[in-house]
Amino acid sequence: MSSIVIDDLHVSVADKEIIQGLSLEFSTGEIHAVMGPNGSGKSTLAKVMAGHPDYQVTRGEILMDGVSILEMEPDERSRRGLFMAFQYPMEIPGVSNANFLRAALQARLPEGEELDAIEFYQRLYQKMDLLDIRREFTGRAVNEGFSGGEKKRNEILQLAMLEPTFAVLDETDSGLDIDALKVVAKGVNTICGPGIGILLITHYQRLLNYIVPDFVHVMSEGRIVRSGGKELALELESKGYDWLKARKPETVGAN
């Protein structure tokens, strides 16, 4: 079993402290949801885990299996098994989806070893079928001219192909209609299992109807103010976020 431990994390962007002492633990085999109102620091959490250069960790730690990842480049974190599905996936003009995935997989192989092209395409087509993605998609440039739903499905496809140990899904449900949401959720559900830990970052409870979390955490003003089981999400749905805002942080361990 692998785990990520975030301990007393403080994060600033351009000298403004966004995350103010956040602690969270999660392990493979678990699905955690982090919910919270806009501006609570949810997306900052995802980006700082992935190593975005604009986010400065001023205090605290993020450990993957006991090893700090804070000094690692984003690509090293990725190759160690940390995946982030972007809220706004980037376009890479002229680079086909297939070539991009091949390059990403190739980067994980030891020097001198070549990715097996036939095996790659077999696996790619199998994952695409699962996500209702048509074959011609492989030749299109990464996210270029994609609809919102296509971009999100592409994120899940990359997730499925890269098989990380931990996946952080940053507002993957935003901008999706109900059908696209179901497809994305189906994709995530087929990926879940004992080998992967998932952190779902979402504003709405809606996604959690399709991907059922083991734990729910509520973020407010840069820290986790409440943790609980999946019923916490339903409680939020009916009461809104305001009832939690005034409360002092409580720590409920994930394990």
Binding site: A50, G51, H52, P53, E73, P74, D75, R77, S78, R79, F83, M84, F86, P89, M90, I92, F100, A103, A104, A107, R108, Q158, L162
Partner: peptide, 10 residues
Amino acid sequence: FYMQQRGLSE
């Protein structure tokens, strides 16, 4: 950053 997040070096 997006490409690095997928494992490619800068």
